[in-house]
Each structure stands twice: as C-alpha cells, then as structure tokens.
C-alpha cells in the first residue's frame, strides 16, 4: 500500500560513505609550502603566496588563536603569520618556532558601518557619538575574545571607558573577516575591523580607534619547527621582508614595521 520512498536511513548511509571516500588520501603534500595566516592578512598573503619562490604556496586563513592551536597540535605548516604577539609568544614557549618571530607589518582598528547605513547621513566621529545614534536592537560586531582583533578592540574600549556601554550591543564573531561580512550584509549596525579590512568590502569607515588606547597592532612572522614543516628546507622567512612583499603590504594599507631587526 505504500509507495517506496528513499528513507532517511538511505540519506544518512550515503552521506557516511561519501565522507569516507573523500577523507582518504587527503593529507597535505609536504613538498608544497603551507602558510598559516591571520584572517586579516587573507588578501596580501594570498597574493604573495601565488608568486612565491618555488611555485604557489598554499594558505590557510582563520583567527590567529585557532591557527595557533592547530600549530601547537602539529598541523603541517611552514610559516605562521600572527596578528598579535601573544599567540606567537605562546607558540615560542611551546617550542613550535624555528627562529625568533619578526614584525612584518602594523595595522590600525577602525569602526565600520554598512554602505546603506542610517548612520551615513550624519557620520558619528567617535565611540560616544556612535553609541548615541544606535537604535534599540542594533548590534555592534566584534571579533571574539582571544581573537587578536577582538582583544585589541576590547582593550581599547576598556581604556576609553566605553566597554560597559558597548557590551550591551556587542555580538562576538569568529574572526575579523566574519565581522566585516556581517557589517557589509547589514546584519550589524557597526563593527570593528582593521583599517586594511575596511578597504576590501563595501562598507563605510566611520572613525579610527585611538592607537594609544591599545597595544600596538603588529603582525609577526616565523618559520615553524621541523615537526610542523616536514623535512624540506630552503624556505626563507626573508621572502616576507623582500621589497616585493613590502610593496604588497603597503598597497593594501598596512604600515611597515617600526624598526629593523625587531
């Protein structure tokens, strides 16, 4: 009496088989250089990896914190570019680095709003004005706690005395690029991202956070220990400091490191 229809069990079985089939032979090829980089470096590092010596390098982007965890757990990566010192030092103490990390670029934090924002008619110029002009139910998107962009922003709000007010509106997202997307889509009324992120999406930049209210935003690069890099040698950190790399960083809006040999 019943027509035969594929039951849910078949759907589940199919999914399981497909997963098993695709999971086989998916290990990273150690002859190719792999770069782990903070989400905010997505555009510059992709560009540099494409023209890198010895063919295009592959990249993995995400929150510095998440990538650092993976590296600690032995993820096969050659370079790590971190968006703060804290995680780089944690890795250094864990013995994951092959050399002392060096500052490769600097950045700033800005407040952004959607391109079609109601704020656009009368741009707020600082945090107090922004807080005054938010509507009830509005959200301010921040990178999560522990994610560098989220830590710098929270540090700045605490030091400028705005944290308790901002907290009422704050929604944490997994990395700075998720904040950028949420604001660009109009889901959050405002968000805090790096100056360089604001340039790659259709958003309006309202104001910059005072750099004196947070630690300097520095990107550090280091080559990882052999357990992570595999046996292949000849990958030189100097590529990240070559004139070409400098130019790519600068074109994207990053500031150069303060002093040589940092």
């Amino acid at each position: 009496m019943k027509r035969i229809a594929p039951s849910g069990n078949w759907w589940s079985c199919g999914l399981l088989l497909a997963t098993a089939a695709f999971a086989c032979g998916a290990e990273h090829d150690r002859s190719q250089t792999l770069v782990f980089a903070a989400a905010s470096l997505t555009d510059v590092v992709s560009k540099l990896a494409e023209d890198a010596p010895g063919g295009p390098w592959s990249c993995s982007f995400g929150p510095t914190s998440g990538l650092a965890r993976q590296i600690q757990d032995g993820a096969p990566a050659d370079f790590f570019l971190s968006a703060n010192r804290h995680w780089m030092e944690t890795l250094d103490q864990a013995g994951c680095l092959q050399e002392p990390p060096r500052v490769v670029a600097r950045n700033r934090l800005v407040c952004i709003a959607p391109a079609q924002s109601p704020l656009a008619s009368n741009l707020p110029e600082d945090l107090s004005q922004l807080l005054q002009r938010l509507a009830p139910g509005d959200r301010i998107a921040l990178a999560d706690e522990g994610v560098p962009a989220g830590e710098y922003s929270r540090e700045s709000f605490r030091n400028s005395g705005h944290w308790s007010a901002i907290r009422e509106y704050a929604v944490g997202l997994d990395d700075v690029r998720s904040v950028l997307r949420a604001v660009a889509q109009g889901e959050a009324a405002a968000g805090f991202v790096y100056f360089t992120d604001a340039r790659v999406a259709d958003v309006i930049t309202l104001f910059a956070l005072d750099p004196k209210t947070h630690r300097p935003i520095e990107y550090l690069v280091a080559r990882l220990r052999p357990e992570n890099t595999g046996e292949v040698s000849g990958r030189d950190t100097d590529y990240w400091f070559s004139p070409k790399a400098r130019q790519v960083f600068q074109a994207a809006g990053f500031a150069p490191p303060l002093a040589e040999g940092q």
Binding site: P63, S65, G66, A68, R69, H86, W87, T90, R139, A141, D144, E145, G146, V147, A170, V171, G172, L173, D174, S178, A182
Partner: peptide, 27 residues
C-alpha cells in the same frame, strides 16, 4: 549558531560556543 546567532555571553553562548571561546584563549 556561530553564523546566525553570533557569540554573546548569556544570550547565545551555549556549550559549543563557550568551548570555542575558551579555545581562543591561551592556557
């Protein structure tokens, strides 16, 4: 949840998001 609800302490931070938040903090 991470995409649609975000990570808000006391409002959307249920168990997996709380674990994820902790994983972002060293130590």
């Amino acid at each position: 949840t991470m995409i649609f609800a975000g990570n808000i302490e006391g409002e959307t931070r249920q168990i997996p998001l709380a674990v994820y938040t902790l994983l972002n903090l060293p130590g």
